[in-house]
Write a protein that binds this DNA or RNA. Sequence first.
DNA 1: AGCACTCGTTGACACGTGACAACCAGCGAG
DNA 2: CTCGCTGGTTGTCACGTGTCAACGAGTGCT
Lengths: 318, 318
Amino acid sequence: MIPTSQDVATRAGVSRSTVSQILNGRAEYFAEETQARVAQAVAELGYEPSSAGRTLARGSSDIVIALIPDTTFGRNLQDIYGSLTEELARRGLTLVLRLSTSTEASLDRLVVGMKPRAVLTLTALPAGQRDLLVRRGVEVLEPDESSNADVNARIGTLQARHLIERGYRSLAYAHLRDARSDPFGGARERAFIEECRLCGLDQPRILHLDVAPEDARSALEELELPGFAVACYNDDVATALLYAATEKGWKVPDDIALIGMDNTPLSRLTVPPLTTIGYDPNQATQGSLQQLLNRLDKDNNREEVVEVQMDLVQRATT
Amino acid sequence: MIPTSQDVATRAGVSRSTVSQILNGRAEYFAEETQARVAQAVAELGYEPSSAGRTLARGSSDIVIALIPDTTFGRNLQDIYGSLTEELARRGLTLVLRLSTSTEASLDRLVVGMKPRAVLTLTALPAGQRDLLVRRGVEVLEPDESSNADVNARIGTLQARHLIERGYRSLAYAHLRDARSDPFGGARERAFIEECRLCGLDQPRILHLDVAPEDARSALEELELPGFAVACYNDDVATALLYAATEKGWKVPDDIALIGMDNTPLSRLTVPPLTTIGYDPNQATQGSLQQLLNRLDKDNNREEVVEVQMDLVQRATT
DNA sequence: AGCACTCGTTGACACGTGACAACCAGCGAG
DNA sequence: CTCGCTGGTTGTCACGTGTCAACGAGTGCT
């Protein structure tokens, strides 16, 4: 039913070994006519090598597993993993997604079983999981810590600088309460605080809330008085605070200023619309992608990593 | 480095064949002591069978591929696919996710290469992709069309009935403009219209918009006058309309009433908060899961499908 | 004692591929 | 004529598993 390399070989009138080599980079050692005949047979039969066989023979598969963090990204997964999938496919690799919420044991089963070429994540991995993977001899592709921290630091800095430029002097940073969902919050907060310090402002307040009215209310209680400018972990957090402020009768941005992050479609639809930070998710993954490919290809031709571009989207909450 | 079944066999003092059979359901044919020794060896070595070898030998892998539709679900993927992953793992199957946005050719490669036990989707599959899969002899698990249509019909009906109960007489239905992102819209709209007819109301207006201010404004233009009650494809659409209505100075819910769908966290944070429909995503996937498992196990003990429970969440836009 | 029969176990093959040594034909040099 | 060389091709082994026929040791029956 499904053609094997033997079928291709027979049809092309050569040995299976010839087919295999032509299809695996040794093509130049063969006569052009042979190459052509094999190519034609492959096309006619719609042959695709069995990844199981390949895996067995080579010791590792062509599969790259992306561990999806248990977190809320500002965008849909499509935006984030779509280009990764395509780019890897172009290099003969298959990207497959896996929720990293599942147990360590099941991750173990997965890697031992599938022998992935690499495991990739866009956020730092829990130590336990990373150990597991290296122990199993799997290549782990985490974002370059420095560059990742750098991106998040830039976000925090950008938020702080914008608020300060707009004249606000009492600043605060609002995290998601659930630390699991807030993997980048630490780095952003640190940069935010640092920027405040550099500008000679007081230590900013730190808030924690879930995306819910109750939490937003108590967060505002903590601020006690109007007059704060709050940088938020994402647009959802900003929306929650905006809601509570409106309810409380605080004027935005006079009594409280808010800046979000992600530039989600909904950030244009609050009243008033949110100031936020936007970025091109395609471009954002490009960096991690480059790192990944460099390490996989063992090509040390390090293409310089393009800095992901962030745009401050000024709307009406600052 | 990675133990094989041979290693287990040697350690347990039996043949590899014995190990294989004990681990694959033929355990009862073997002496208890042998079973115990094998079990112990497995544990001590941390043995996991290589899925490549398995796949080769059996002709199909233990992998189930979930095709993620190119659509915006109201919830995070974690909520939707998390329980699926776990439940399948309990049955020795491994769920991996795959964006269905990628090309047909790459889907083909994936399927031929990985020989998945089944391919699963939560929405109906494009005809081209389905053909491809059955041609490759893969089991395709689509949601039972009738039950799926039924769920969506209930949503449309529920929205209509609520609006009518609240006394509204001029109704409209608002789709996402991008039909790709709106796979269920058709079924919901039909049920919505039907319910209007049953109650003797005029044919409802149909709107199409993206989640953006411009689109929401022109959608309202189409309605011309205040006095409509609009059922929306999801909470985001409702939020967009709410924004435009507020901007226009229309009072909600007097000049325009809105009901969303999904009960997202943000639906509590609009001003005024959205009336919407909530459901338990865990329970919602349970149905598809049961179907899938039944078909995989070939157990014809059809557990009756539990009806997905929907709760109308009345807030301030109706 | 010989036979059939069961229980527990093993040996051998197949699955589809990649890698590499070995092979063959042809050809020029000695 | 023989040797060595080269471009082109093939044979063979290894990868780790599942399956199934076959095997040996008991055991009860005739």
